[in-house]
């Protein structure tokens, strides 16, 4: 009697455990089914490398190169901002902060990581964009630069807390050995602890990038939304995510425009998938190297 019951429970749990896999497969299938017609109608190369995105013109043009470049520029700018500041903050918390300061800073950083993206977008739109416009004398404040800045600020807590985790995994003996041979704290930090944690820190950078590429509301509100190939940081761009968010409402269900938005989603999904797999592989090697098991 008990044995049957046990088996039933185990069966239920193992079935439910597959939910994530089912959803992931479901997402992939949906994106392929709804997105693939575009590759047939527009052509794979014309879609990916086409230089103009005019989905509502007659005849419509579906080239997403400007959107891909928009995403890349904004993400690149965000990384330039959030990596030094996030990793620097993590080093500060790990090395310089006293126990008490650390006990306050770590939860604060974690709480800040939870600020919703819409708040960053709103703040960027009403405060930062006008400020940048005045400061640099630009025609508009909603530019790739503004987007990069907001995304960078947004990703900083994530980069910081994952890097800090990686740093705290470095065994104490590393530090003690380095100090014992006469290195000072800065040398120990840059030549021993940082290299030991480097692969863990690079995971944080990749995850930060993945977050920046996939971020929607912030870029939708602050990058200005012009679907042109960007030449400088100080002009409006239209990243992939914001294109989907802004145009899905007006796209006719089942039409080419609708399908092309799903195809953009598919490309976005594949990009973040690659980022996540890389991050996963690196963090596995990092754990093995420091003998952390699992």
């Amino acid at each position: 009697m008990y044995r049957i019951k046990e088996k039933i429970y185990k069966g239920i749990f193992s079935f439910l455990a597959f939910a994530s896999l089912i959803f992931l497969v479901g997402i992939t299938t949906t994106l392929f089914l709804e997105g693939l017609p575009v590759f047939k109608e527009v052509g794979f190369f014309d879609f990916i490398f086409g230089k103009s995105w005019y989905p509502t013109y007659e005849p419509p043009e579906f080239g997403i190169l400007p959107l891909i470049l928009g995403s890349l520029w904004v993400t690149f700018g965000a990384v330039l901002f959030c990596v030094p500041i996030g990793v620097g903050s993590a080093l500060f918390i790990n090395e310089l902060a006293s126990k008490r300061v650390k006990a306050v800073l770590k939860p604060i950083i974690e709480i800040l990581a939870g600020i919703p993206s819409i708040v960053y977008g709103f703040f960027g739109m009403v405060i930062v964009a006008p400020f940048i416009q005045r400061l640099l004398g630009l025609p508009v404040g909603l530019t790739a630069f503004t987007g990069s800045l907001m995304l960078g600020i947004m990703a900083t807590p994530t980069v910081c807390s994952i890097s800090e985790d990686a740093l705290s995994f470095v065994p104490r003996s590393f530090r003690e050995a380095s100090l014992a041979v006469g290195a000072n704290r800065w040398q120990t930090l840059t030549k021993v602890i940082f290299p030991a944690a480097a692969s863990g820190i690079s995971t944080s950078i990749i995850l930060g990038m993945s977050r920046a590429v996939g971020e929607t509301m912030t870029v939708l509100m602050v990058t200005g939304g012009a679907a042109v190939i960007p030449h400088t940081f100080f002009q409006p761009v239209r990243p992939m995510t914001s294109t989907i968010a802004a145009e899905m409402g007006e796209a006719v269900m089942g039409g080419t425009h609708y399908n092309s938005l799903f195809a953009i989603g598919l490309i976005l999904f594949l990009i973040t998938l690659v980022f996540n797999v890389i991050a996963e592989l690196i963090s596995r090697r990092f754990r093995k190297k420091l003998g952390l098991g699992r």
Binding site: S20, L21, F23, L24, G26, I27, T30, L31, L33, E34, L207, S210, V213, G214, E215, T216, T241, I244, A245, M248, L261, F262, G265, L268, F269, T272, L273, F275, N276, V277, E280
Partner: peptide
């Protein structure tokens, strides 16, 4: 699959929700 699901951009969830 759990790790990868965690990294899917939120707007893609929106597309999935719309289609399904």
């Amino acid at each position: 699959s759990i790790n990868n699901l965690a990294g899917v951009p939120s707007v893609v969830f929106g597309l999935f929700g719309l289609a399904i």
